[in-house]
Nucleic acid binder design. Sequence first.
DNA 1: CCCTTAAAGCAAAACACTGTGCGTTAAACT
DNA 2: AGTTTAACGCACAGTGTTTTGCTTTAAGGG
Lengths: 189, 189
Amino acid sequence: MSSDSVPARRTGGRSALVIAAVRDAVEDLIAESGADRVTVPAVAARAGVSPSSIYRRWGDVGSLVAEVATLRLDPDRPLPDTGAIDDDLREWARELYGHLARPTKASLLRASAVLADDGETNCLASRRDEAERLVERARALGQTTPSVRQIMDHLVAPIIYRITFEPDTVDTGFPDTLVTELHRITEPS
Amino acid sequence: MSSDSVPARRTGGRSALVIAAVRDAVEDLIAESGADRVTVPAVAARAGVSPSSIYRRWGDVGSLVAEVATLRLDPDRPLPDTGAIDDDLREWARELYGHLARPTKASLLRASAVLADDGETNCLASRRDEAERLVERARALGQTTPSVRQIMDHLVAPIIYRITFEPDTVDTGFPDTLVTELHRITEPS
DNA sequence: CCCTTAAAGCAAAACACTGTGCGTTAAACT
DNA sequence: AGTTTAACGCACAGTGTTTTGCTTTAAGGG
């Protein structure tokens, strides 16, 4: 027995299966019936898991949904690196839109809006980080770039806004248009 | 007794008082503890009303919150009319931001994001209508204007995005900056 | 002023969610 | 292999939410 109290987590096997099943169930249920109808018993049933396991691990639905949102809304691809900021942004915007426009992700996004009420959510913080990296890299190469704020306001915001509040508007060319318009803001001819 | 069945609503007196009290209670509770903690019993208690009255009139929390959101997020001022589209937009954007940035309205906005999952919400539809009216009026006067889409993407979207997902960013000059940038998109010098 | 009846209140039952004690399973480490 | 114990499942208790039948109140109309 060790005198110090380091809990020693359990990361594999059954526990891992339970965690994965629960997270998938949350995603499914949110996509199916909206975030407001996701309850612990429902998730447990769908995941084939005991409700008490969920309560003990996550505490309540809020934390669970928050965790799934931050995990699943995160980018899963490396940053584009074409050498030109405009092309990088175009590809980046396409990826962002394509990623979040899927109904399941859109529902998660809306769910995390409510969670933004109680302090921190930041399911989109990593997107801002990415924008910062893109800008810094291009500036180091001497390119003229929009500011991070401008990228957030005129590229990210419209994309998120449409997905969140006007899901019907499906338009593949949309991100490209935004990048073009952002370009006009940055350097008028 | 009449052969026809026209229900004959009751609009005044006690019913009106109950409705008003319930709506106020919803707004208060959402502002206080977030949309996910608004329950029918809580609203009933705060409003000094019987829970069953709420269930019978509104059915469930969702419908109730949706109703309050559409009512309270609507603009309550006449459209600006300065004669120049840029000034109109500037004033309009300031009003929009000032109106929705208040914590109570912001919480309502986030709540209605979740409700957008199940079909229609459109608590912002009237804002789009307003933008349309502004544009049409200015065009009738021969002015060059941004399109309604551009107004939604580069003016409304950033404002809503910030309020919804990044509430900490308080910046009074923000709407003005956006209008200036929108102007650069529309007509480059 | 009185009648009709929509809508509110009350009370209790039905249902759903949350939390805890306890025995069991199996992950991590030797 | 064997030991330890984190994490799971089960069952049940406590609490909160939703529904319903019935009674009471008062809005709207003659």
